[in-house]
């Protein structure tokens, strides 16, 4: 069991229509690719992280995995069964085993439900099979470390960290095999971020979950993810083991993201790879390597020819000139 992947994503694309008929005569596309062909798999007990700037397609990919967003190409296989394109009724069976956590800790909780109702919502949807709701509430709240008297509170009476715990409790209610968490630490204080990550880590071990964690905060990834993918304009530019990527980023974009993380140490000498700030529009994807417009190392070939994906020691990379250890950019570019 543990060998087979829980989730396999193969060449998935998600397109959105663009309502701008005026632009079409100028050769603009009438749809954009929010996710432009990504593949990965997650095994039981493993955590896979998706990292990238906002707009890179992370949330769209998560929604596509859960069937909230139709997939326009590629396939999503969950527990050995293809689930992309399934109808709502067929999908319902799979949704029981696949839990999603959304970005806003409080906003993802229904405002007129009490915590007790929220964490047992899955039983009301999928049938409670004679379960005792009060006992289930107590079990779930204790799993996430909340006192039982929270069962009567409403979401707006919770702090961000408490709301996040409720979200986690709700996600694991039906013993899922996969949890997809979109920015689980967004909007939380540092003192609480750790709590949530520890909780997710614990649950993964105790329940043998597979997890997909989405974040733009690299520091979070280091401590929770076994493998990670760096996403840019809807594609993976680098995939591999978290530790390997942290110790030796090969794609310039990965290196830039890593260096863009301010550390709480005033004495630390910083040689930062600064990127031009603006991410290109999906309506006008750059030619060649799509990162060349921001890449400090870009050369002529990067502008014209898209780099092929190459694999080396479990690392998949799309770059013409992968970085060596500790390599620095040739020149500094401002904002």
């Amino acid at each position: 069991m543990s060998g087979a992947p829980v989730l396999e994503v193969d060449g998935v694309e998600v397109t959105f229509p663009v309502n701008r008929p005026l632009l079409r005569p100028f050769g603009r596309p009438h749809s954009i690719k929010g996710v432009a062909g990504v593949s990965f798999e997650v095994k039981r007990g493993e955590t896979f992280a998706l990292v990238g700037e906002s707009g890179s397609g992370k949330t769209t990919l998560a929604r596509a995995i859960n069937g909230l967003q139709p997939v326009s190409a590629g396939s999503v296989t969950f527990e050995g069964q293809r689930i992309d394109g399934l109808g709502r009724a067929e999908m319902k069976l799979h949704r029981r085993r696949m839990a999603m956590m959304f970005q806003d800790p409080i906003g993802s909780l229904s405002p007129r439900q009490t915590v007790g109702e929220l964490v047992t919502e899955a039983f009301r949807i999928h049938g409670s099979e004679g379960r005792d709701m009060r006992a289930e509430t107590a079990r779930l709240l204790s799993l996430v470390g909340l006192p039982l008297d929270f069962a009567d509170r409403y979401p707006h009476q919770l702090s961000g960290g408490q709301a996040r715990r409720v979200g986690v409790a709700r996600a694991i209610a039906f013993n899922p095999v996969l949890v997809v968490a979109d920015e689980p630490t967004a909007g939380l204080d540092v003192s609480v971020q750790g709590e949530v990550l520890n909780l997710l880590n614990d649950l993964r071990e105790r329940l043998g979950l597979a997890m997909v964690i989405i974040t733009h905060n690299l520091h979070v990834v280091r401590h929770v993810a076994d493998r990670m993918a760096v996403m840019y304009l809807g594609r993976f530019v680098e995939t591999g083991k978290t530790e390997a990527i942290f110790s030796e980023p090969s794609h310039p974009y990965t290196a830039a993201l890593l260096s863009a993380n301010p550390e709480p140490d005033p004495d630390k000498a910083r040689d930062r790879i600064s990127l031009p700030a603006e991410v290109p529009s999906l309506l006008a994807r750059p030619s060649g390597c799509e990162f060349h417009t921001r890449c400090p190392w870009a050369r002529e070939i990067c502008r014209s020819t898209p780099p092929p994906a190459s694999e080396r020691a479990g690392r998949v990379l799309t770059c013409h000139f992968p970085l060596g250890p500790g390599e620095h950019p040739p020149e500094r570019i401002g904002l």
Binding site: E53, H216, N217, A256, S274, A277
Partner: peptide, 11 residues
């Protein structure tokens, strides 16, 4: 985002 954050504080 982190990339924009550092750019903004440098600015």
């Amino acid at each position: 985002d982190a990339t924009l954050e550092v750019a903004t504080i440098e600015l």
